[in-house]
Computed example of a mutant assay.
Amino acid sequence: MSNRFRASVAGVAVVAGLSMLTACSSTASTADGAAEPDFPTKDITMVVPYAAGGPTDIAARALAKGMEETLETTIIVENKPGASGITGLSELSSKKNDGYTITFTPGDAFVQSELRTAPYTFDSFDPVAGIMTQPYIVVTSKDSGIKEFDDLLSGDRFTYSVSGIGTPPHINAAILGDDLGANFAVVPFDGAGPATQAAVGNNVSFAMLDASGVMPFIESGDLLPLAVLTSNGERLDYLPEVPTLNELDVDVDDMTLTIYGVATVAGTDEAVIEVLREAALEATTSKTFADFAEQNYAPMLDEETEATWYDSLKATAKTTVAALKKFGIELQ
C-alpha cells in the first residue's frame, strides 16, 4: 500500500475520532456521568451479493476479519447471491439504517439498478469506503501473430471473446473498437473461464478480461499482454512494461472497471459511517487482506479514486446504458 493511502487511513482515523467525541458530548449521560456506549455494541452483518467461495466472498471474509479487530465486534458474512447482485442489495436496502448491516461488493451490483428492474437505486445506500479494483488486460494468444497493441489497427477483421453479453468486458471491447475505428467482432462465452480459454487456444484474436483470470496465463507465457485498463491510468506494478490504454491515446472515459467497496443503508448517521470507514480502510492493511489482493492481482484504490468511487459508479451506470443502446447490446 502506498504511503499516500496509509496517510489517508490515518487521517480518516482522526476524523472518526473527532466525530465520535462530538457525538458523545451531545448524548445523554448515565447517572455516573459516563456517555452512552459507542458504536458498535453488537454484531454487524456483511451482506455479500454473490455466492460463497467466489472471489468476492473470499475478499469479503478477509476484509471482515480485519474490520473485526478494529471494531472489536463480530462481523457475520451472509451470502445472498442472485440476479447479478440484485438479490443481495435488495436485502440490504430493506434493513434499518443503523450501521449494523453493510455490504462488500463489486460496483456492478449497484449499477444493475440502472440496467434492470430493481427495488433500489444508488440513493438507497450510503458509501462507506472504496477498497480495491480489478484491472482489465487486453491479451492475445502467443500464437496469434499479434505482437503489440498497434497490430489491432491493421484493418484486419479481429474477433474477441467476452464473459457474457452486456458484461463490462463486452462493453469495454465494443467501446475500444469504436474508438479505434477497428473491425472487431464479438464472440460471447458463458463466463470468464471459457472466454479466457478461447484466447489461450487462439480461437479468437484477443480478449479484454479481468487481471485475476488472465495473469496466470500471462505468467506461463500462453497469453501476451498488449495493454491494461487501470483505475488511475497508471501501469500495473506486476506488468510494468505493458502500457495503459491512456498512454495509447484510447478514450477510456466510458469504459468500466470493477471497483469493490463497502456501503450501508441510506440515512445512516455520519459518525457511524466514519467508524465503519476507518475500520474498512484499516482492514486493507492487514496481512490476510493484502495477501488476497496480491494473489488476485487486485490493487488497492489510491486516495483520489477511493474518495470518489461511489460517484464513479453512478457515472458508469449512465455510460453503460448509453453504450448498450449505441451498440445494440441486449442484456440476457
Rank of each mutant, 00 (worst) to 15 (best):
F149Y: 14
N79D: 14
N202M: 05
A323E: 03
A199M: 03
A10M: 12
L71C: 08
L153K: 15
T117R: 00
A185I: 14
A83P: 00
I165H: 09
D43G: 02
T244P: 03
N79H: 13
T41K: 11
A62T: 14
Q112R: 14
V265N: 00
V321Y: 04
V162L: 04
W309T: 04
A23D: 14
S312N: 09
V12Y: 03
P194V: 11
L239R: 05
A83E: 15
D210I: 03
T320Y: 10
L331D: 09
L248E: 08
T30Q: 06
K314P: 04
T308N: 12
E68H: 08
L176I: 09
D108H: 05
K326T: 14
E278S: 03
R235S: 12
G145A: 09
L239S: 06
L239M: 08
T284G: 02
L239F: 11
F125W: 08
V14Q: 13
I75D: 10
G155K: 02
A198M: 10
A266Q: 13
D237I: 07
A23I: 05
G191D: 10
G107H: 05
I58T: 15
D156R: 14
G145M: 10
A322S: 13
T264F: 01
I131Y: 08
A118Y: 01
D38W: 01
L245I: 03
K80P: 00
W309Q: 09
T101W: 02
T56C: 07
A195S: 15
F110H: 02
G33C: 03
L236V: 07
A315P: 01
K80N: 10
N232Q: 09
L153F: 02
D302A: 05
A198N: 06
R235Q: 13
S220Y: 07
D151S: 14
A28S: 14
G267R: 00
A182Y: 11
A13E: 15
D302N: 14
V252P: 00
V14T: 15
D178W: 08
P216K: 04
A23T: 04
A271E: 10
D249V: 03
E72L: 11
A13M: 00
A173C: 09
V9L: 12
A10K: 13
N232I: 04
P168C: 07
T56A: 13
N183Y: 13
A35Q: 06
D143Q: 02
A185M: 12
K80L: 09
D32Y: 05
V265C: 05
D302C: 01
D108N: 02
N97C: 00
G66H: 10
A129Y: 11
A290G: 01
L245R: 06
Y120D: 07
T105D: 07
T196F: 02
L331G: 08
G11C: 02
L257A: 05
A62R: 13
A192I: 15
R6W: 04
N172I: 05
T74P: 01
M67D: 06
K287G: 03
K95H: 04
E304D: 12
I58D: 15
G177P: 06
G166T: 06
P188C: 06
L301S: 05
A13I: 00
E278G: 06
P216V: 08
I102M: 08
